[in-house]
Design a protein around this nucleic acid. Sequence first.
DNA 1: TAAACAGTTGCAAGATTGAGCAAGTGTACG
DNA 2: CGTACACTTGCTCAATCTTGCAACTGTTTA
Lengths: 126, 126
Amino acid sequence: MDRMNSDAKSTPTEDDSPSCLGGDHEHHPVKIDDSACERAAAIFRALGDPQRLRLLIMLEARSYCVSELAQSLAEPLPAISQRLRILKSERVVRSRREGKHVFYSLADGHISRLVTNGVMHAMEDT
Amino acid sequence: MDRMNSDAKSTPTEDDSPSCLGGDHEHHPVKIDDSACERAAAIFRALGDPQRLRLLIMLEARSYCVSELAQSLAEPLPAISQRLRILKSERVVRSRREGKHVFYSLADGHISRLVTNGVMHAMEDT
DNA sequence: TAAACAGTTGCAAGATTGAGCAAGTGTACG
DNA sequence: CGTACACTTGCTCAATCTTGCAACTGTTTA
């Protein structure tokens, strides 16, 4: 009953390529910078965590120091600091020191828009 | 020794207060839906992989079938299928069958905008 | 100077994930 | 009917990431 489909090894067909539409395809390898692609993915990845995203949502309103964030979210301070560190390493947020407090804010409006768009889309989606 | 830091910056709160959370931080802990937050994070997370992002960038132009994507990116078909599966599970892409081919496309314009914004930001890279 | 507060970082345990191979499902066509 | 093609999915392995506690740096105040 079983048909061992031992057709061949990999080599995803390179000769005929009669694939989808019968050969009307022009496969352009996409001229997007690899680095830009990776960078964008890194940013998305930084945003891809509920905990970090919540941090960013708060920071959309204004700057907060770590203590405030930790208190508002009712989470241990080191955890918050660590998340902020990740976000900062991707240049999603910026930090400035004021006395013995460190205030964090979104890096720029671009990030803000990204966050807003994502959340809005998530809300619309059923 | 006693006085050295003459920052002279207007502290956000009275410097008399021991900390920034002296008690006037009674503002609401962000009224963003938890579900929306998680959902948004899930979407960002789906976009947060260079391989998947590349797929999405291609799909921004038009629909592609799995074979075509695998060929264009020179990667094994199961790998592509797997990535598409993840993207589909987050409703980032949609699939439609046509004969023995399965065509994938971006779920909606919102996603497209999200991808574009992210890549553009990555290119600018402040 | 020492103590207290604000944040950061190191290290190990735990969970989640992505890749690769192989086998399974399903469709078209001889 | 059965084969070839297109795609999916189980499976395991390895890499990655998050967290939690504790220790450390740095700043302000007594």
